[in-house]
């Protein structure tokens, strides 16, 4: 098809149609719309563009949304399940199913036991460290090694054992 003469009505319609394809909005000035309606050269392209744009807008509105609620529910169920181990809320536990409550209880018990074990380990390490430090200070002041102090501390128990052995003999 021959290109439209620059500045002619057909050319101006063509420019407007190009802009409509680039933006998705067709708004011909009234006099150009009147021209395009009756013009055999630019009219068909104008009508096809207008039909396509209105069909695209209509297609979005006509889409069946049937699967949406189910998909949304699945997502919300999943994130509630994922969040459960992180949230130890009795309110949520009472709202859930018996199985979910049982799982939450198990998770909570494991979490509490883990915390207790961690605190016990820290205390043990701290007591050991402090005791050793005291023995080292004592060694520096009195010259008695930590081994000797421990031997002296344990001697009453050893004496008892020896006495029992002697008695048994």
């Amino acid at each position: 098809m021959k290109p439209h003469a620059v500045g002619s009505a057909c050319h101006r319609v063509q420019m407007e149609l190009d802009e409509a394809l680039a933006t998705g909005t067709l708004a011909l000035p009234a006099e150009l719309a009147l021209h395009a309606d009756g013009c055999p050269r630019c009219g068909p392209e104008y009508r096809d563009t207008e039909a396509l744009l209105s069909r695209l807008r209509g297609a979005a509105a006509g889409i069946e949304l049937g699967p949406v609620p189910q998909a949304v529910d699945k997502v919300l169920d999943q994130i509630t399940r994922e969040a459960a181990p992180r949230v130890f809320s009795m309110v949520e536990a009472s709202a859930g199913s018996p199985g979910a409550q049982h799982r939450q209880k198990q998770v909570r018990t494991r979490w509490i036991l883990g915390q207790v074990a961690a605190v016990a380990a820290v205390l043990l390490i701290a007591v050991g460290g402090i005791g050793y430090a005291i023995l080292k200070v004592n060694e520096a002041v009195s010259g008695v090694s930590p081994g000797d102090v421990l031997a002296k501390f344990a001697s009453p128990f050893r004496f008892t054992d020896t006495a029992k052995i002697e008695k048994a003999k």
Partner: peptide, 27 residues
Amino acid sequence: SPRLYRTALGMLGNPHDASDALQEAGL
């Protein structure tokens, strides 16, 4: 979700894949 589903349907062309994409995006 309705806008997202419409978008997914336009992108993928069928309700099953669109629903899967919506769920995957949500998670």
